[in-house]
């Protein structure tokens, strides 16, 4: 047998218990298994090897061989994937992840020219978790809500006051009343124990946050052909696995929160849902205008996003 002859380092920014880190461990295990133990993956969760916003550049420079990062936290840098973050109303992470995967596969954007793309995925759609119940769109007018990524623009347009701050500062801000809630995907209710101070959630499917896993190009080129084949073979599968895993995890988190804290999910009315779409529609037009000016086929990208959304949501409910 072979001893582990190839060691790959994998940098990740959120804590070990969160889904981006769990997908990293799963990927590491699969690669080790499928290469018969020849490849060993050393994982670094929690930003210990590279901080969140330096993972892409750090991988290009070779500080880590592989890195997972949130494209949405660096606006302007990954224009194609921003299309997936727009408020188009994805209903689950599995469909959104597959749509992102197919979109990048089709357009082969130049922002990934310097790296080898390992996989992509998204978090589940963001909902509005609050201290007091929000039963209609009217009730969030003027409410200060913590968010990140595309969320600031979305919240501003639907009448709330977005406060951009890292997830790590949210609990204190909520307890002090600086913000009245958190707009994010709902697995954090359990993972970060937000259910303890945010007992209500309004389901709104506002937006997703998209992640990419990339590898240093020279490191990739140095790998034997059969190892490359294993990694390539895992690419699409990993995107789907992660989406499915985190969707299940949200369901589990909601059940846990309901049992432990009596957490309550409120469904916004259809009228409110379409009002959200109407109010955020200009963001999509802005996006098309912006990327078209950069030389990308904006209108075609958006058409593809809607088509992919429909296609994958038919498959994954």
């Amino acid at each position: 047998g072979h001893a582990a002859s190839i060691v790959l380092t994998y940098a990740n920014f959120p804590p070990a218990t969160t889904f981006p880190s769990i997908q990293m461990e799963r990927w590491a295990k699969e690669v080790e298994k499928r290469t018969g133990g020849r490849v060993k993956v050393q994982t670094f969760p929690g930003g210990t090897l590279l901080p969140a916003k330096n993972i892409f550049d750090g991988v290009v420079a070779g500080m880590a061989d592989i890195g997972n990062f949130a494209m949405s936290y660096q606006p302007g840098r990954f224009p194609l994937s921003e299309a997936i973050d727009l408020p188009v109303g994805f209903r689950n992470a599995r469909a959104a992840s597959m749509a992102l995967f197919d979109l990048i596969e089709k357009y082969q954007p130049k922002e990934f020219a310097k790296v080898k793309l390992i996989t992509v995925f998204t978090c589940p759609p963001a909902d509005i978790m609050t201290r007091i119940p929000v039963r209609s769109l009217k009730e969030i007018k003027g409410m200060e809500l913590r968010t990140s990524g595309t969320g600031t623009d979305v919240l501003r347009r639907i009448g709330a006051i977005p406060i951009g701050m890292p997830q790590s500062e949210a609990p204190e801000a909520i307890q002090k009343g600086i913000v009245k809630g958190n707009v994010s995907s709902m697995e954090i209710l359990k993972d970060f124990n937000f259910a303890a101070y945010l007992p209500y959630a309004a389901e709104a499917n506002l937006f997703v946050v998209s992640f990419a896993v990339v590898m240093n190009k020279d490191r990739w080129d140095s790998l034997p052909a059969d190892v490359k084949k294993v990694i390539d073979g895992l690419s699409r599968e990993q995107a789907e696995w992660t989406g499915a895993y985190v969707d299940d995890h949200v369901r589990e988190a909601l059940e846990w929160s309901k049992k432990k804290y009596g957490h309550q999910v409120i469904r916004l009315s259809d009228a409110d849902q379409s009002e959200i779409s109407r109010l955020t529609r200009p963001m999509i037009d802005d996006y098309v205008r912006k990327v078209t000016a950069q030389g990308l086929p904006g209108r075609e990208i958006m058409k593809d996003v809607y088509a992919l959304k429909q296609k994958h949501e038919k498959k994954y409910r």
Binding site: D57, Y73, Q74, P75, G76, R77, P79, E111, S148, G149, T152, D153, P162, G164
Partner: peptide, 14 residues
Amino acid sequence: MKILESGELSETLK
């Protein structure tokens, strides 16, 4: 320079 060239903007204020 990398931020300037890649067109990366700040997270909240863009």
